[in-house]
Design a protein around this nucleic acid. Structure first.
Length: 879
RNA sequence: GGGCGGUUAGCUCAGUUGGUUAGAGCACCUGCCUUACAAGCAGGGGGUCACAAGUUCGACUCUUGUACCGCCCACCA
């Protein structure tokens, strides 16, 4: 081949920029809709939450998926690798509110002149939020997420993710809304949804219902307050409670049925202090005699036990906390709010109404104290309390009308579906199973928010203007997506909105998971393009993190089953986390993350990808810039080794001799043994990659590559350089060329830039394949017969050669000589077959060790730690 | 309280179905400008495989228990 000019140093930034542009223009990663399903590999890419910036954890997990995808592409698969942006939902609302200092007030009219402006953040200063209309708010959300998504795409491109950018979607766009609303209609038609007005977990800050999956428990400092309560008969007892503010909502007082202290009260009533409400004293199994004073209040609603108690139907519902988390204005003496002294009770209530829960707690303690109903001081305690995962105030149970999906009665089939999916690593299925088994609520899918997918529902209004929630009007599938607050239901006119006899639109939006649980169907255009859907669903792979198994994985499995009785994907790959050296999860809030852009600039994309690819699925990885450096070094080594091979393959400029060789030129025993080792590596690597074990594959490839550089190349370089025209020289050239191509292809999924760069020097033309990433995954080649068993694993020729070279290198190192220092004699003692093998590589050894004479062979005793006993004598002088 | 994973060199991690003397990279030490690479090369030191018991001719590997770390879930007036 003709000589090519190669740069002296590897400049990763320039190379990455060059290939990034080429890949963008060439469409090398595009999906081909005409390919068969069997020959297509479909990824259900996680749509990252669009919340300002991606961090190193994203780089980590998305790279792992890309490595798998690139391998599949080289197997010849047509790849469907889309990118979604999860811009729907509360994170966006919060971000936009903070950035622009705005707040949605749905009753305001649209202001077409409104322009959002970024509000400078000042420490300790609370920003006054300007109220704007729903439409203005939504437009601001879309504008902001659009900007973020452009930045994200840029990072992903630089990282080298082989995404088909034609397959992009946003979870808030019209298409996603159509699929999501269609999903709801389909679930409704199949009887999987219902709406009900009942107590639901409610976040008072965001003023929305939340689902079980979004709830987390946090430890919180709390305190017991001892309240003295009198029974009907005037006998007093003490209740120890952490929620004294719920006293006006007290519906009963309970103790354990076997608790002898309180048995005498069962069947009678107590009178609550301050409010003078008469409440029954009842036995209840959940009362623990060991805790507190053993007797407790049942309120609306302090905890899940209170809720259970209410559901049994023996006590009234006394809602005192409003949707905004403030105590409501309750009129005692009316309805369920009984009181022996209504005017006194109302006087107390007037001091509590409008207070937030925390304020009310303090106030009521004061008031109790004044009447002598508070005993002693409060006793601090640590308590676990349920919070909305994005919220800052504890959840309350508040009675509201919500839509639910029927999960509880379908646990068994859902577990069965989960087991049909192949989990990587396999133990992660336990997370799924345990979650499903432990579920105790149906999936609440309605949210009282704005930036989300609306329900495709209206409610008829009766003559009094009261909505008929039992008979909702569902949108027609052909009209999706609909906005019930802007569009009219079938058979009505817009004049009838909010009019008696007319209709109202459902003001709620769906849980963001209700949409993201449809990501495979959003990509496949389910319900819109059946042909495309059938060729993309179920997908092959869902990559995701383990903390959202209970949400994203579970809900996606649920939807796929409810819609089509299918699994959504054949495989699920669970990535680990990136953690700090002190084992904490790296996250933005910790303020300790470096931006991925900076890291790529500093270390190169390939280096970051190398780090991500070192971690096995499901395993957490320490953030360690040293590993980036190792990746950087590997790229440089590939560059240099490739440069060396290219130099050997180039025609000799002095003789201008045209050299030609092919795989059949590989005849030298040591070359054949090397090829045999490479064959084994190819077999191992393919198996490992196919089993999603890219990290182990990489480590084997890497080890072999360094051995190639430090051992094989050193051994044959003189032969390749000085004897090009001989059969022995051509054997070396053919082996070098073939080996390097294999290494490039093996590394290509992990290091797409450096491998593409080297590929372009020579292999692109040779193989007639412009990009290494669409070249075929390498396969083992047939070997010529080797005279003796030089490939015998027990002591293959390469291994034996290594022993000699190590002995010589050790001797030179010990004598503090350079590696070119001449060797006078090498004398080898060992078993005859091994000596015979060694003779096959003697010429290469003489050259690579700078040996002045032939090797002396002696049958006899070998050393304990090898196959030979070796004596090396260095020359006196270097000449 | 239930479940899952982990504990191997100073650090980060490999270690196949049990099989000689437990590996790698980083870090450390000693050398070497050697015409692919000093962003390199060669050599070297460093481990009671968390602990205990058991199975076995033989245990980092299998069983049981304990300790510690991490995560998931549940509960707590």
């Amino acid at each position: 081949m003709a000589k090519i000019e190669l740069p002296k140093k590897y400049k990763s930034l320039e190379v990455e920029e060059k290939w990034g542009k080429v890949w963008k223009d060439s469409g090398v990663y595009h999906y081909d809709p005409s390919a068969s399903r069997e020959n297509t590999y479909v990824v259900d890419t996680p749509p990252p939450t669009v919340s300002g910036s991606l961090h190193v954890g994203h780089v980590f997990s998305y790279t792992q998926t890309d490595v798998v995808v690139r391998y599949q592409r080289m197997l010849g698969k047509n790849i469907f690798y889309p990118m979604g942006w999860d811009d729907n939902g509360l994170p966006t609302e919060r971000r936009v509110q903070g950035l622009f200092g705005i707040k949605c007030l749905p009753t305001l009219p649209y202001d077409e002149n409104f322009k959002p402006e970024i509000v400078p953040q000042k420490k300790g200063k609370r920003i006054v939020q300007k109220e704007i209309s729903r439409q203005n708010f939504l437009e601001t959300c879309e504008m902001q997420t659009g900007e973020d998504e452009k930045k994200y795409e840029q990072l992903w491109r630089h990282l080298g993710l082989s995404i088909d950018w034609n397959q992009q979607y946003e979870t808030i766009n019209k298409h996603s809304q159509t699929v999501s609303q269609n999903s709801f209609l389909d679930l409704n038609s199949k009887g999987f949804v219902y709406s009900i007005d009942s107590p639901t977990m409610w976040d008072t800050t965001f003023q929305t219902a939340v689902a079980q999956a979004e709830v987390e428990e946090r430890e919180r400092q709390s305190a017991y307050h001892d309240i003295v309560i009198a029974s009907e008969s005037g006998e007093e007892f003490v209740i120890s409670t952490t929620r004294p503010e719920l006293l006006p909502a007290c519906v009963a007082i309970v103790a354990h049925p076997d608790d002898e202290r309180y048995q005498k009260f069962f069947g009678s009533s107590a009178i609550t202090p301050l409010f003078k409400s008469k409440v029954p004293i009842l036995p209840a199994e959940h009362a623990d005699p060991e805790k507190g004073t053993g007797i407790l209040m049942v309120c609306t609603f302090g905890d899940v036990h209170d809720l259970d108690f209410w559901k049994k139907g023996n006590v009234p519902l006394k809602q005192i906390i409003g949707r905004d988390g403030k105590l409501m204005d309750i009129a005692f003496g009316e309805g369920v709010f009984v009181s022996e002294e209504p005017s006194a009770a109302n006087q107390v209530m007037s001091q509590l109404k409008g207070l937030y829960v925390k304020q009310a707690r303090r106030k009521i303690c004061e008031l109790l104290s004044e009447v002598g109903a508070l005993k002693g001081d409060s006793k601090p305690t640590q308590q676990f309390v349920k919070y909305y995962e994005k919220g800052d105030e504890p959840l309350e149970y508040i009675s509201t009308r919500q839509w639910f999906i029927k999960i509880l009665e379908n646990k068994e089939p859902l577990l069965a579906q989960g087991r049909k999916v192949v989990w990587h690593p396999s133990h992660m299925i336990k997370r799924f199973e345990q979650w499903v088994e432990g579920l105790n609520q149906d999936w609440c899918v309605s949210r009282q928010r704005f930036f989300g997918v609306p329900f495709p529902i209206w409610y008829p209004l009766n003559g009094e203007g009261e909505p008929d929630y039992e008979n909702p009007i569902f949108a027609k599938k052909e009209t999706l997506p609909v906005d019930p607050l802007a569009d009219c239901p079938p058979g009505y006119t817009s004049q009838q909105r909010n009019q008696p006899g007319g209709f109202i639109g459902d003001p709620d939006v769906m849980d963001t998971w209700a949409t993201s649980s449809c990501t495979p169907q959003i990509s496949s255009h389910w319900g819109i393009d059946e042909k495309r859907h059938n060729s993309l669903f179920p997908a092959d792979l869902r990559p995701q993190a383990h903390e959202i198994i209970r949400t994203w994985a579970f809900y996606t499995i649920t939807k796929a089953w409810m819609h089509e009785e299918k699994i959504p994907w054949e495989n699920i790959a669970i990535s680990g986390w990136v953690v700090n050296p002190d084992r904490e999860k790296m996250s933005k809030s910790k303020g300790n993350t470096v931006t991925p852009e900076d890291l790529i600039t500093q270390y190169s994309a390939d280096a970051l990808r190398y780090w991500a690819s070192k971690a096995r699925l499901g395993t957490d990885t320490i953030y360690d810039e040293n590993v980036f450096k190792v990746g950087q070094r590997l790229s440089t080594k590939i560059f240099n080794a490739s440069k060396f091979v290219m130099m050997q393959l180039s025609d000799d400029s002095e003789t201008t001799k045209d050299l030609s060789w092919d795989l059949s030129s590989i005849k030298e025993p040591v070359d054949l043994v090397w090829v045999s080792r490479m064959n084994q590596l190819l077999i191992n690597a393919k198996k490992l990659f196919s089993e999603y074990d890219y990290a182990v594959a990489l480590s084997q490839i890497e080890t072999s590559f360094w051995e190639f550089c430090d051992l094989y190349v050193e051994l044959v370089k003189t032969r390749a350089y000085k004897q090009k025209e001989s059969a022995a020289g051509l054997s070396a050239l053919a082996t070098l060329e073939w080996t390097l191509q294999n290494f490039l292809q093996l590394f290509a999924p992990v290091l797409p830039y450096i491998t593409e760069e080297v590929w372009s020097w020579h292999y692109a033309e040779k193989n007639g394949e412009a990009s290494i990433h669409t070249s075929s995954w390498p396969t083992p080649i047939e070997l010529a017969k080797i005279e003796i068993s030089a490939t015998n694993n027990e002591a293959d020729l390469i291994g034996l050669t290594k022993e000699i070279m190590n002995a010589v290198r050790g001797e030179k190192s010990k004598a503090q000589k350079n590696l070119r220092w001449p060797v006078e004699t090498i004398s080898v003692c060992g078993e005859k077959p091994n000596l015979e093998k060694l003779k096959l590589v003697e010429e290469d050894l003489i050259q690579s060790c700078s040996l002045k004479n032939s090797i002396e062979y002696q049958e006899g005793q070998k050393a304990e730690d090898g196959h030979f006993s070796i004596t090396v004598t260095l020359a006196e002088t270097n000449d």
